[in-house]
C-alpha cells in the first residue's frame, strides 16, 4: 500500500509500524514515530496497523542544537 512518511509518498509491504521501520532500515535507537500529533511508542509499533494513505512522521537523531 501507499503511505506518507514525512509527507512523501512511500510504497510499502509492511502491515504495521514495526515492519515499516525495519523496511526503511532505520536504526533501533534514536528514532520516533508519530501519526498526526499522536506519538506511537516503540512498544506500540507492532500493534499499530498501517492504513492506505496514512500520514506518519518519523524523526531521527541529527547534529544540531
Amino acid at each position: 500500500m501507499q503511505v506518507f512518511v514525512n509527507n512523501r509518498p512511500h510504497d510499502t509491504s509492511a502491515v504495521n509500524v514495526a515492519e515499516l521501520v525495519a523496511e526503511l532500515q532505520l536504526p533501533a535507537a534514536g528514532i520516533a514515530v508519530a501519526q498526526g500529533r499522536s506519538l506511537i511508542t516503540k512498544a506500540q509499533w507492532a500493534d499499530t496497523l498501517l492504513t492506505e494513505g496514512c500520514q506518519l512522521t518519523i524523526i531521527k537523531a541529527a547534529r544540531g542544537g
Binding site: N6, R8, L24, P27, G30, K60, A61, A62, G64, G65
Partner: peptide, 21 residues
C-alpha cells in the same frame, strides 16, 4: 545537544547517534 530531523525514505544517511552514544 542532539536535534531531530525527518528521515529520508530514499537515502539512509549515516547514523549520527552512534557517534554520541
Amino acid at each position: 545537544t542532539v536535534a531531530m530531523k525527518r528521515i529520508e525514505t530514499t537515502n539512509a544517511s549515516d547514523d549520527m547517534l552512534v557517534h554520541v552514544q
